[in-house]
Structures are given as C-alpha cells and as structure tokens.
Design a protein around this nucleic acid. Sequence first.
RNA 1: CGGAGCGUAGCGCAGUCUGGUAGCGCAUCUGCUUUGGGAGCAGAGGGUCCCGAGUUCGAAUCUCGGCGCUCCGACCA
Length: 438
Amino acid sequence: MRLSAYFLPTLKENPNEAQIVSHRLMLRAGMVRQTSAGIYAWLPLGFRVLKKIEQIVREEQNAAGAQELLMPTIQPAELWKESGRYDDYGKEMLRIRDRHEREMLFGPTNEEMITDIFRSAVKSYRDLPRNLYHIQWKFRDEIRPRFGVMRGREFLMKDAYSFDLDADGARRSYQKMFLAYLRTFARLGMKAIPMQADTGPIGGDLSHEFIILAETGESGVFCDKEWLDLDVLASAPGFDDDLTPFFEKYTNIYAATDEKHDPATSPLKPEELVSARGIEVGHIFYFGTKYSAPLGAVVAGPNGEQITVEMGSYGIGVSRLVGAIIEASHDDAGIIWPDEVAPFKVGLINLKTGDADCDRACDELYRDLQAAGVEVLYDDRNERAGAKFADMDLIGLPWQLTVGPRGLKNGVVEMKRRATGEREELPRDAAFSKLTAA
RNA sequence: CGGAGCGUAGCGCAGUCUGGUAGCGCAUCUGCUUUGGGAGCAGAGGGUCCCGAGUUCGAAUCUCGGCGCUCCGACCA
C-alpha cells in the first residue's frame, strides 16, 4: 500500500478524550475513531490488526475442533425469557422494539441462541460432542465505558459453545479450549496466564480467566515467576492427545488476581512470587445444564433415555485484544506490533521522493517485496524525513526499510527493527532476502 | 448510578470572572527556499463558540433547562 493513497489520519497531538496509552496511540495512529461513548469505527489500519487477531483466533479454534458459524447481533427476547436471563441481565442489555412492537435485544452473548440452534437440530448422542463458535459484535451497555476499545460497549468477541453427553466429555472440551487459548495468546506474542475465576452471571463451577500481563493493566495479579519463562507453543500437546497432564500442570502453577490472592496463605516464597498487572482477554466456563435444562437441549442416549447436554462457553475479546496488545507493547514513540498481528510487516521509507534514484530503488523494492508476499506500507509522500520516521515509529510496523540518497551512493539501505531500535546498513538485495526470510 | 471536570476551526488550547460581535500553536491550501528524526519565509481558506429558552441596545461570556464527552468510585470479554 502506498501511504500517499492510504486513509491513515495520524495525529501529532494527543486527543483530549483519551487518557490511557493504548487509546491515545490508537487514535494518534489513525486506527479507530470514536462515534459515541464506548463505540468505535475501525479505520483501515486498525481494521487490519483486528482481522489479523481474528484470524489467529480462528485458526486455533478450528485446530481444536470447533466449527465456525455466524449468529445475528439482534436476538428475540423470547429466548432470554426461556432461560430466565431476560430479567436477570439488567440494564447492561440493550433492549429494542421493532416496528411490530416485538421485544428484541442486541446480543451481549449467545448461550440462548446457540442452545436453541442446537436443540432444534441435534437429537442423538451419536452427534456429540460438538463445539460451535462465531466471531461477532456484541453490545453491553456498560455503566461506564472507558479505556478505549478495552472497555467498549460494542465489542468484537469470539464465543464458542461446547455440547457434550456427560461431565467427562465436557471436561475434555474444556481442556481443549484451555489449550487453544494458551496457544492463541502465545501466537499473538502475548504472555497470558490462566487464573481461577468467579463464574459471574453465567454460572457454573469450572472457569478460568486469561490475563495478559501489562504494566498498565487494570487489575493486580500475583503469580509464580515460573510463568514468565514458560514456552507454551514448545511444550503443548496435540489437541487429540490426553490433555489432562497438561491441564493439571498449567492449572497448578500459582496465579491469582489480587481479589483472590492472600499473602498469608500463598504457597509461594516471596522470591518466587511475581506481582504484576494484567488485562483480562479471555474467559472460559463449564456450566453443565444451566441453559440446556431450561431450554430443553436434550438428546437420546444409547438406551433411548433422554440426556440433557452438558455445556461450556469460551470467550475471547478480539477488539479488546487490540488495545491490550498495545498496552503490553509500546514505547514513547508509539506502538510496537508483535510480528503476527502487525498491520504491515515492513514500512518502506523513501527519504527523498522526486529523486530519480530513490524513487526507482523504492518502487522496485515495493514491487518485489509485494511479489514475494511481504505486506509493505510504502511511504512515498512528499514529507520531510522526520515526519516519516515519526509516523512510522507511531504506527509500529516491525521493520522499517529506509532508502535515501546518501545510502544509495554507497549501495546500501537501512533496516531498522522497531522493537529494539537496532539499525543496520546493508545492500538492497541483502535487506530484501532478510525481509522475505524473516 | 454517586462525585468531579470539560464542550470555542481537523487536533491542542486562550478568551468566560469584569457582556461590545472571536484568537494562538499545530494541521490544511498556494508560492518560493529547504530535505537523514515532526523545516523556514510569504500569503490564503476554514467557526451553528454543544443545543434551546431567557436577560440585555448587544451574549462565547450572565440565568435556566437539556445534550454530549472525560476522569474517580461500585460492575465487566
């Protein structure tokens, strides 16, 4: 993409409305624009990141055996009356009436709807287990939206729902999602720690929150320092293996939110304990028949008996993750995207547009990198060097490739790694092979 | 929902106390000069001063009502 043609309204100054760093940087980097409190429009750069995260989440869900579908944002109130949550959910639920005065709502979650879909289609134990998920916008009318996209009212969430014949099966489904979550967050370049959690209004007796460590996180967390060195992707079993040893290993390493942590009863010596801050980005629940019973999600068992299915639900805050990743990965100059979610891999900076040599070298690099499948944002604007460097640091692409008249005279271009600030001058072809290999 | 603050050009702000018809920096546009870390000079455009009602010869400024946004607290992917 040529920056001269890209819709990227960056800001030099901090908008007054944004206080925390991820919100400020998202506005300054031209990723989002607020349209009302807690509701955001995603501009092209932000949208690319959102889609990258979504795709990683999707790949891991699919690998774990979950199947993607898509349910609507608007739901009929009747389903929620059946489960009893229409009255329980309170003002957080946005209620709507259509032109026929039917009661509708903008879905804050989809347990009722997925259970309805399931019960109408599945009648036999032979069709279990199933895990269905979608990635869809939700609305919760928060009392006080804040922190930009991290506590928006409208937000993009991946929510999966498992259906099993019995508690053992449900536990297996839960463990698969547990593994998928650890893999997902590791692939996003984040350290996410599962913590025993309250089950909240959804209910149930087995639940974990996944919390990303970030200095500016909203809740305090305590954990075994062993967490900091764990490499999930290296040690993870396959989804079809027996997951119990893995699950037990990871749930036995100490981790607790500050509400649950009690220094008096902590099993860890002070030197083993890490105190940090974190952001909740995922939450998984096993809740048995809480919805299948009232909604009548029942299948015939091997002996013809009626079995109420065991369910769990598994959420990941996709739009929240955009903010959370920035909270965990930025510096004074701007965002530092982990490679896997970066909106572009390389920012190509033409230091002197209009100069025949610079233009030719940049045009060729741009063309060749794209042909090699590398996502490039090419700054071909007629701006000063300083402005280009500042914008490139702000939007945080992993690699910056700078082409200027001075370097070209010596046959070199400059490559900078955004995360470390390391720069290297090297011949054009060497830079090209590094970027296509990395 | 309780407490606090803000609303003036795309962004950041001054002007409000003490009423006289709107200004600064950045951004934008034009020209010239510049060009390796947010350039210089000259010129230009851009405003329902959040909305409504009132007071007044006259309201960004005073009064009343409303709306929006932010922050702190109780709640949450």
